[in-house]
Design a protein around this nucleic acid. Structure first.
Lengths: 345, 345
DNA sequence: TGACCAAATTGGAACGTTCCAATCAGAATA
DNA sequence: TATTCTGATTGGAACGTTCCAATTTGGTCA
């Protein structure tokens, strides 16, 4: 009895309706929609008029089903709470959108079961390709499965242990090497390293860079300087508390990433220490916020946005030439020195 | 002559292949896949074995085409560079994923042409619903078009001028009122307001809250205290520079959002001022980073993540009951006092 | 034995496109 | 006039599902 359901069971307007309205066949309409040169201009014009008049909207699902294609790209991100990944995502999306693709985005929050589910889902939707930033401890088998499924896969940031995948990441060893050397050159001798021990290859590389810098300057490294923390702002605070409790105190810390460094800056401030004067800090990633902390953060800039764009580009290249050999691209990071890394007192 | 193309033109495994392998009809397989109770357990088991053996993957495109449905939700975000929106996105994605939906995400970067394109795209893909955070100056006509297209639409954060949409946002007036009153109660008398003049209804509400707080305490407001800036970290720096140049100087600033406040904190630090002692700052949004700045930021917390979840929930509700009347939900923000808002010297 | 029933299974039309092969109209050629 | 050609258009079979209606099977009951 209510008025709201009087609407005629609205089946959506199809290509056939347009065809009828324009007095042509559906094949013709299809060709017009693809702006085929085969169709006479006047006919095309007439069809376009009908399209507008009827409010026709293209049904990409049906089209994609028929031709074996799609223009959706799956993007799987492990930690969007970290601005590094958010900025990277923006870069990816931008590049893909420019190329006419649309992004199916999923966030795993480092959970393997979620990651599994979303990859399946993207597979079910026949995504044209997938960019995956693997969650911690992603089993090789999963990558293998995705790779073998025939859908082009680019892995970013965290390089899988073995196997030949398209990979885009940063030169982590080099990055922390530069940062650590910079601190040493500033005069620091006792430098802590704040990271998540056992955080996979990325951790290993970043730690190795730090170790190499110390070694090359003949500086001893105390085992306690490797402080094991969560890779969050709170982790950074925690790490600083541990560092300040040591005797003798380190005078500087290389942080695993910018987010950790942010926590460190904040904690140091609460201890009444002026960062850059009383204690030195370096970050890693080069997120936008690093330039605007108090004080601004010295960091290893890998260009999160352009790294995302590179990953997207790698996938696009792969789509263009499906059986090209897998590529591996390592971004050269560059150290951006700001005020957080002054010499020791 | 190369070896790589010897692979037999791999048509993907379909429900029919599974049916043949299991010795049943494709209808049966379809029913098994939907775990229909109609099928005898032994049969179902046999079918499932074949599914596994052949490595069949469900083709959701085909399924969605047949039944008039989909489980993709479009999410359109205007500014992912701002952690507020990133955190909100995470909340949305989480809620939607829990409900079995997958997110088609797009980033407009405040560009109307992009927004137009992505909405069309989502329409073409027959997204089950759309959550839209409109770019600045989004024309009413666009919203109307989307709404009339029959696909459920929830608008977040920026409330459209008129019309009845499902909307989820925050009580902006109340938020800045609380923040401003807090500063006044701390003893501040000259308080600047840093925002983007003409930034639409959100700006108007936040400014109004500030003005009401001042009025209720019988404090005069100098027109120059409304400082017009970009809504970025750099904008925040810029605003502080302008404030510090004024005579007499304001002793505090209410910032339009957290990102602006971050820039402000940084700039004040570079001027050698200790925030919370020499100058007071409040933010708006309650992003995670606000708790870890130096010093930690007093801010109006709207809970970006849970706001995203609310928006997703509103859409899910709408999907459940398509012709429910449009709802409007205003989150009550709460002021989180930290160290950035101490009394004047 | 025949009729009836419930449970399990199945054939085939539909969903809205694309694209191949076929047709058609009219001009140009023989 | 009959033939060929070219450019424009079209019919209809696919794509891989779902789901309705119909069929089969085997048991129960009168």
């Amino acid at each position: 009895m209510t008025t709201q359901n009087n609407a005629p069971k609205r089946r959506s307007v199809t290509i056939t309706d347009v065809a009828r309205a324009a007095g042509v066949s559906k094949s013709t309409v299809s060709l017009v929609l693809q702006s085929s040169p085969l169709i006479a201009p006047e006919t095309a014009e007439r069809v376009r008029k009908s399209v507008a008049a009827l409010g026709y909207v293209y049904n990409r699902r049906a089209a994609d089903l028929r031709r074996e294609s799609s223009n959706m790209i799956g993007i799987v991100i492990n930690d969007l709470g970290n601005p590094f990944f958010a900025e990277m995502l923006v870069g990816m999306e931008r590049r893909l959108a420019d190329a006419g693709y649309i992004s199916l985005m999923a966030h795993t929050n480092e959970r393997l079961d979620v990651q599994d589910k979303v990859l399946t889902s993207m597979h079910e939707y026949h995504a044209a390709g997938v960019i995956l930033c693997p969650a911690f401890d992603t089993p090789q088998a999963l990558l293998e499965r995705t790779r073998l499924s025939g859908i082009p896969l680019v892995i970013v940031v965290r390089e899988p242990a073995a196997g030949n995948y398209n990979f885009v990441g940063a030169d982590n060893e080099r990055g922390t090497f530069d940062a650590s050397r910079h601190l040493v050159e500033q005069g620091h001798r006792r430098i802590a390293f704040l990271g998540r021990v056992g955080g996979g290859p990325v951790y290993d590389f970043r730690r190795a860079g730090y170790e190499r810098a110390m070694r090359e300057h003949n500086l001893p490294v105390a085992p306690e300087w490797f402080i094991n923390i969560a890779l969050t702002r709170d982790g950074g605070r925690d790490g600083i508390r541990q560092a300040l409790a040591m005797i003798p105190q380190p005078t500087a810390a290389v942080c695993y990433n910018d987010v950790v460094a942010f926590g460190a800056l904040s904690e140091l401030g609460e201890h009444g220490l002026v960062v850059g004067r009383d204690f030195a800090i370096t970050g890693f990633d080069g997120v936008a916020a690093a330039a605007h902390t108090n004080p601004p953060l010295t960091t290893v800039d890998v260009g999160p946005g352009s790294l995302g764009e590179s990953a997207a580009q790698a996938l696009l290249d792969r789509l263009a030439i499906p059986d090209a050999p897998p590529t591996r691209r390592l971004i050269e990071p560059k150290l951006v020195v700001r005020q957080s890394s002054g010499p020791p007192k």
